[in-house]
Design a protein around this nucleic acid. Structure first.
Lengths: 176, 176
DNA sequence: TCCTAACCGGAATGTCAGTCTCCGGTTCTA
DNA sequence: TAGAACCGGAGACTGACATTCCGGTTAGGA
């Protein structure tokens, strides 16, 4: 693969990510290409159809979530704090790409690994008495999805409330 | 207006509501017509374009929300309970129609009236120390919108958590 | 019952946004 | 410097919708 070809591939992936984040999974291919500073021809040469492109995006994204989960576990003092940090972080970056990565049928094995990993943490948080026990890992994944589909101020605004709702201890912090 | 014409008008409105609930504000007109058991011609004769149809829907819906608010106030013992009941009830019925009714530019005066009414209740709930004070009426309206755009199990599942997050007293009820 | 204005259905037309192909021109790299 | 690999984007195609139009049907008053 020639150097310029690889360079373009990367640019396309990044552009796809941004575009999908803003316009959803069915964003125009041409928009993605233009955003990458590339012709549609180039886009299609690299990714024969939308499905392939989305799969690549999903793969990449799930891996990043995995890393974010590791970071959260390393940085936070307990399981529930880690879960919280992970969710906040994940919702904060790359919006719609989450939806593409998690909701779709792409990269199911990577997704599965992520879910299992998160599940361990969730169970721990519940065992600690920190997280309410009538909500589970699946709920969190769906939560990510819902918020991923609503770029804009909404997630930032509601996420803290939502997380407080999931918190069994429910600390009340008027200014945050 | 002939009897059959009126009958059809009502059927169209109902079909539009269901269809918009499922497929969003830009659901195909033809789908709405078919669902109403009517030809597209009839639909267009009654509602010259999508905007008019949506406006009619909005009007009707906002009035229903108003009634729901009244009912909630009458049935519940305090302001916060009424707010909660209202939100749950509103999210529960006629999904996407909410989005059409509230997000759009249709029926702004009716919407305004609803918001003001709800606002009184919200302030009361906050004054009672029952609802957290860093979230307001606007947040609730947006909340309705977000959930309205996500038919399916999601709202039912998350709404209770969300509302608990907004509750200053935060009663913990493992089984509900 | 009969008449006709009002109403109905849906085929037909027009529009538009997007996808994907193709090829003449350009750029790496050996 | 040759030529394999790559690039851009015009344009042919497609499908999904909106909207119009008119021959056939019907409600409901005389």
């Amino acid at each position: 693969m020639r150097a310029d070809a690889r360079r373009n591939r990367d640019k396309i992936l990044q552009a796809a990510r941004d575009t999908v984040a803003e316009r959803g999974t069915d964003a125009p291919m041409e928009l993605i290409a233009r955003r990458a500073g590339v012709g549609v021809g180039t886009l299609y040469r690299r990714f024969p159809d939308r499905g392939v492109l989305l799969a690549a995006l999903a793969e990449q994204y799930v891996h990043e979530l995995m890393d974010a989960l590791d970071d959260a576990v390393a940085a936070e003092p307990d399981a529930w704090s880690a879960v919280r940090a992970f969710v906040v972080h994940s919702v904060g970056k790359s919006r719609g790409a989450i939806a593409a990565a998690l909701a779709g049928t792409s990269a199911p094995q990577a997704r599965q690994a992520l879910v299992e990993r998160l599940d361990v943490l969730v169970r721990q948080a519940q065992a600690d008495g920190a997280m309410r026990s009538d909500a589970g890992t699946g709920d969190l994944m769906e939560l990510l999805n819902v918020f991923a589909c609503h770029p804009g101020v909404i997630p930032e605004r509601f996420l803290p409330f939502m997380l407080d709702g999931l918190d069994r201890r429910r600390p009340y912090r008027p200014s945050g």
